[in-house]
Amino acid sequence: MAEPAARRGASLADGLASLAAVLVAFVFLFPIYWAFSQSLRNPLDTFTVAGFGIPWVNFTPTLANWIDQVGTPETLRSLANSTIVASGAAALALLLGTPAAYAVARFRFARWKNRDITIWFLSQRVLPPVATVVPFYLVMRALGLLDTHLALILVNATFVLPFVVVILRQTFLDLPLELEEAALVDGASHWGAFWRIALPLAAPTLAATGLIVFAFTWNEFLFAVALSSRNAITVPVHIAGAVDTRGVQFWFMGVRAMTAIVPPVLIALLAQRYIVRGLTLGAVKG
């Protein structure tokens, strides 16, 4: 698209560039590959395998670790917990954030300008979690919500709300205003215009946003470890549990790391188009 015109046809340089790009991609994928390779090894192969630890080439792979780990009730429970918490937080954040995004996109606010409101939402995202983890802990204790899915849903929804507002605000701005205005002229309420016209048009973005915030919640560790103790343990907290009094058990860690990493990474691929906008909080359209 935007290659300098003079470069066109410089095929040798482009070939080298392609090669470099492949190498770069390899470097960035290697750690994930490495975790996978570790998960297939016997404990005795952990420290003695040479080179890049290629299964069948450098060692004989085994599925024993996967069978041992994935089958345990603790692993299954943590996967279920993470799914519940991440879906719950995503749903709640969408529920709260979508109307708010619509409001700043379509209405004019006077005393606090629209951009001030948007920015105020954003400031929540920059807030360091460690500054709020102790009060959150105390609040949840007072509400009797420690070690519940609900506590983690409430907390995570709060922290992903800015993403929802920012991504969807831009989406609503990009929708043609005429359709909604026509509906209003036909006697629909603002709510009706939002619900029946704008929302269905924004549905693909809505889904992508949901997936992104699902992934963020899935990866969250600090609040999960502070607020869960038995019933609500999520995948990252479960991973930390593979470390016992004797240290890291590499072979189990490989399996647990893969179970943690794969779902959010798949989601990232699905929602690719919206990622730049989401991660820069809308500052770059991408």
Partner: peptide
């Protein structure tokens, strides 16, 4: 697309993977 993966890899798991 491959370059996007690290951003979404669970940071805690990433820490353990890099430990190894």
């Amino acid at each position: 697309a491959a370059m996007i993966l690290p951003i979404f890899a669970t940071p805690l798991a990433v820490g353990y993977v890099f430990f190894t």
